[in-house]
């Protein structure tokens, strides 16, 4: 394979800050390979992140990059896309970032169907702050703020995105980076709001509290809970309990927000509207 990574990273920032075995780097690799395969110019890509380990991703890539506030990657990205629709806008978020503090922004970005690709690195925990449970921590698992087991239900983020109005929704894992790259490529190519959720690991925070202390043990666990979408559909409710379906859940063509706004401008300039 040609070494595509070096073309897109800010080498002076490496080695990165992530812990040994952290999936963030694997997702970054998949993202870079997908962008490279589309032949996009670095100047035309804007990548926005929020807060958390995963959000450091924007510091490492040589695009127009922005590391914003916690949960807010999507509204910042929305401002960028709306103002300059020519830019290819990507928002990278963690699960706490996207599904908790940024949950409202997530569903509304999907509702608008604005042409942004959201990549969510779901390691099911708040890693940077020391392993507190997130809205994606499975029920019954442990976190530093769930020392007796998590009683919350976790979101199905992909189902949430699909029902909120996105155009493309897929889920993969760091165990299967080929699939992740393929899904991200499709998401990036999609005109509309596209979501790729990548199940990732956190050996230090999640692993430490859930008897999965090494990167390999975490990887094995992810492998064991992953089932292809088709297989998952045939499982009983009981069998589905500890599994996560992988694959593409939605791929539709619906009008995109910045395109629709152009129509608004046309109507306004022709003197239309309710005046």
């Amino acid at each position: 394979m040609k070494n595509v990574i070096e073309k897109y990273i800010r080498k002076e920032m490496f080695p990165h800050i992530w812990c040994p075995g952290c999936g963030n780097g694997i997702v970054l690799g998949a993202l870079i390979r997908a962008i490279d395969s589309l032949g996009w110019e670095k100047d035309e890509v804007a990548m926005v992140s929020g807060i958390g380990c995963s959000s450091r991703i924007t510091g490492y890539v040589d695009f127009n990059t922005m590391n914003t506030t916690h949960g807010r990657a999507l509204p910042f990205a929305t401002g960028i896309k709306m103002s300059n629709p020519k830019l290819k806008v990507i928002a990278v978020m963690g699960d706490g970032d996207c599904a908790a503090i940024g949950g409202n922004h997530f569903i509304h970005a999907a509702r608008r169907n604005i042409d942004i690709t959201a990549v969510i690195i779901n390691n099911m925990i708040y890693g940077m702050t020391g392993g507190q449970y997130s809205p994606m921590t499975p029920t019954g698992k442990f976190g530093s703020t769930a020392p007796y087991g998590n009683i919350d239900q976790n979101f199905d983020l992909s189902a949430l995105a699909a029902s909120a109005g996105a155009s493309y929704v897929a889920r993969s894992s760091i165990y299967n980076p080929n699939q992740g790259t393929r899904f991200i490529k499709k998401a990036l190519s999609k005109k509309g709001f596209s979501v790729v959720e990548i199940i990732s690991d956190c050996p230090i925070s999640y692993g430490r509290m859930n008897k999965l202390r090494t990167p390999v043990k975490m990887m094995e666990w992810i492998k064991s809970i992953s089932v292809p979408k088709k297989t998952w559909e045939k499982l009983s409710v009981e069998e589905k309990k500890d599994k996560i379906p992988m694959g593409e859940f939605l791929d539709i063509c619906i009008p995109e927000y910045t395109d629709k706004y152009k129509e608004v401008c046309a109507i306004a300039q022709e003197g239309g509207g309710n005046e």
């Binding site: 926005v48 127009n64 922005m66 914003t68 506030t69 807010r72 999507l74 509204p75 910042f76 990205a77 929305t78 401002g79 960028i80 896309k81 709306m82 103002s83 300059n84 830019l87 409202n104 922004h105 509304h108």
Partner: peptide, 17 residues
């Protein structure tokens, strides 16, 4: 936008372009 926080964020994103 969906809320005040998002409005402020979108404004900053727009200004950057």
């Amino acid at each position: 936008m969906e809320d005040e926080i998002a409005s402020m964020a979108a404004v900053i994103g727009a200004s950057l372009t």
